[in-house]
């Protein structure tokens, strides 16, 4: 059975003047032990999707319009908020982007880890503290430092503490929302290595949100490329990296500077993402696409399978007009 299966998730933010279509009809699957990379530029709806899974969308203005989020076969959108609370932090936990602000400045790191354990496991305060020390050791921080405050740690160390909090109750699913974006590059590699190691050790599945394809290549088993609230290409890591099809995916790969070639300028995708409160009809990527035709304007694009386990939301690719 799939650990997490999202079916047709649609999330809107109803503002006073207009409605922001943040996530539109997104379907994803995560198998036990698997890591799914969710890639896209800022504003593509990655974080909203993640918050939707945790049911942490601010309502109002946010609203989950339709869809199902099946976690171990149970629809998270149908259970009570008390049941949801018992899942958060225990079965599904989340790592936030900025470790600088994800820790409470006035509680010691030990207290903050112990809090989650105390909340979900029926154990005494003592035991929780004992286990928080073990967690610190697991993420490579000396357990003696449990009594120190967040400001006494560096950024990378703080992110380790955040990871320790997230993994304290051995969750089945870890949602990591750009866990390394706020860290510098050398620390990024360390933190990613550690996350992968711990994930394998605890047999945790992971939804990794990032806009770094290099991180995806190193960490993920499957990839979903998101654009303007839709998944435009979805498949296993090998298929998608060896045979990227959607013009947007191609553009993303094309914008990564090559080590071999000497170029003066980066090669970005031209144009900007459409305003999510006024999405165009037809293909959302049309305006920036080199291969767009009149048909793209008229027809709503659907995800089509081009090879087993590899789907693309582009009629030109599916029609065989476009080939890489």
């Amino acid at each position: 059975m799939n650990l997490l299966e999202i079916k047709g998730l649609t999330i809107h933010y109803a503002m006073r003047a207009n409605t922001v279509h943040a996530v539109n009809n997104v379907s994803l699957v995560i198998e036990p032990g698997q890591t799914l990379g969710l890639v896209g530029e800022t504003g593509a709806g990655k974080t909203t999707t993640a918050r939707g899974i945790m049911r942490l969308i601010q309502t109002p203005p946010g609203k989950i319009v339709s869809g199902e989020i099946l976690f171990e076969g149970v629809d998270l959108l149908k259970i009570s908020s008390a049941e949801m609370r018992s899942i958060r932090g225990k079965s599904i936990s989340m790592i936030f982007q900025d470790p600088m602000s994800a820790l409470n400045p006035i509680l010691t790191v030990g207290e903050q880890i112990a809090e989650v354990i105390h909340l979900h496991e029926k154990c005494s305060k003592r035991e929780a503290e004992e286990r928080s020390r073990e967690m610190l050791e697991m993420v490579g921080i000396r357990p003696e430092r449990a009594g120190e405050y967040p400001h006494q740690f560096s950024g990378g160390m703080k992110q380790r503490v955040v990871i320790a909090i997230a993994l304290a109750c051995s969750p089945k699913l870890l949602i990591a929302d750009e866990p390394t974006t706020a860290l510098d590059v050398t620390i990024q590699a360390q933190v990613l290595d550690m996350m992968r190691e711990l994930k394998d050790k605890l047999n945790t599945s992971m939804l990794l949100i990032t806009h770094d394809l290099g991180v995806v290549a190193e960490t993920c088993d499957a990839v979903a490329i998101m654009y303007a609230g839709e998944i435009v290409e979805y498949g296993s890591l090998e298929r998608l990296f060896h045979n990227p099809k959607h013009p947007y995916t191609l553009g993303l790969f094309g914008s990564i500077p090559s080590l071999d070639k000497d170029t003066d300028r980066l090669n970005p995708i031209r144009g900007l993402m459409p305003d999510p409160s006024a999405l165009p009809k037809g293909c959302k990527f049309r305006e920036r696409c080199d291969y767009a035709c009149d048909e793209c304007r008229k027809e709503e694009q659907s995800l089509r399978e081009i090879e087993p386990g590899h789907t693309v939301r582009c009629m030109r690719v599916a029609g065989g007009v476009l080939n890489g």
Binding site: M54, L56, R88, F96, N104, P105, V116, V162
Partner: peptide
């Protein structure tokens, strides 16, 4: 608006607990 409040929600804390433990001391 601090992220650690959202993080506390993501660990499954109740509103009352978040107010008492994370907000009021501040």
């Amino acid at each position: 608006t601090n992220e650690y409040i959202e993080a506390a929600k993501a660990t499954g804390s109740r509103n009352f607990r978040i107010i008492r433990k994370h907000i009021l001391p501040n």
